[in-house]
Every structure is written in structure tokens, then in C-alpha cells.
């Protein structure tokens, strides 16, 4: 099939931006909150400090951008890996729908969670 898909450049842009943003931000955040604090290598920050941080609009915007773009980045990569890796060319549309649908649902949930922080 050679149908033109005008959304492709937009998806690629989201893939690219998500790859960059997650490469810059995720390793340090995961190192701190995923390993250093739970293992007690560093004292976990107190609640008041983090609460003030996540209430700030700047933090919430950064988190929203990171989440949305990283999810579309993952959807884009996974779509091709599942299709070619597992040879599901025939199920391409289903794979695309699941990958991008997941990213859309995750983004909506993230927007809701971050908007309702008080």
C-alpha cells in the first residue's frame, strides 16, 4: 500500500522530541526516585518540598510534555519493532491502533492527573 499519510511527519516529530526529552530527563529522575531513594543511598526528599515542586506550573508543564512525548516516542518505536520483530505485517493496523491508542490514553490520563494537582 502506498497511501499517503499526512500524520506521519507529526508522529515522527513527536518520536524525535520524545526521544530527546526522555534521554535528557529520565535517567537522572529514575536514578534518584527508582534506586537512590528506595535503597537509602540518599535521604528521600521530604513531602513538603516535593509538594511545592509538583504544584508549580513549570514542573507540571515539563512533566506533561515529557509524558506525552515519551509515550508517543515509545508507541512509534514499538509499532515498528512489533511489526517487523514478530512479523505481524498483516496486523499492522491493529498494532498501530494499540500503540498509538495507548499513547493517547496515557497522555489523557497524565493531563488529568497533572491538571488536578492541588
Amino acid at each position: 500500500m502506498t497511501t499517503r499519510r499526512p500524520v506521519e511527519p507529526v508522529l515522527w516529530l513527536a518520536f524525535s522530541a520524545g526521544g530527546m526529552l526522555s534521554a535528557l530527563l529520565v535517567p537522572v529522575l529514575l536514578l534518584l526516585f527508582g534506586l537512590a531513594f528506595p535503597l537509602g543511598l540518599l535521604p528521600a526528599p521530604d513531602h513538603a518540598h516535593l509538594h511545592a515542586l509538583v504544584r508549580s506550573p513549570v514542573t507540571r508543564l515539563v512533566l506533561l510534555a515529557l509524558t506525552v512525548l515519551a509515550l508517543f516516542h515509545a508507541a512509534h518505536r514499538l509499532r515498528y519493532t512489533v511489526r517487523d520483530g514478530l512479523q505481524l505485517k498483516r496486523l499492522e493496523r491493529l498494532v498501530d491502533a494499540l500503540c498509538y491508542g495507548g499513547a493517547v490514553a496515557g497522555s489523557a490520563l497524565a493531563a488529568y492527573l497533572l491538571a488536578t494537582i492541588s
Partner: peptide
Amino acid sequence: ELSSVFVAWAVVFLLLLAHAVASG
């Protein structure tokens, strides 16, 4: 390519953290 699955997991983990912090 599969690292993207863990990128997605990481942002979900961070969202859960933000939600927990906001909840009290």
C-alpha cells in the same frame, strides 16, 4: 528499540509519584 518500553514505564512511574505527592 525495546528500551522505549522502559522509557514509557519510567514516565508512568514518575506520574504515580507526582500523584502520590499531590495526594498527601
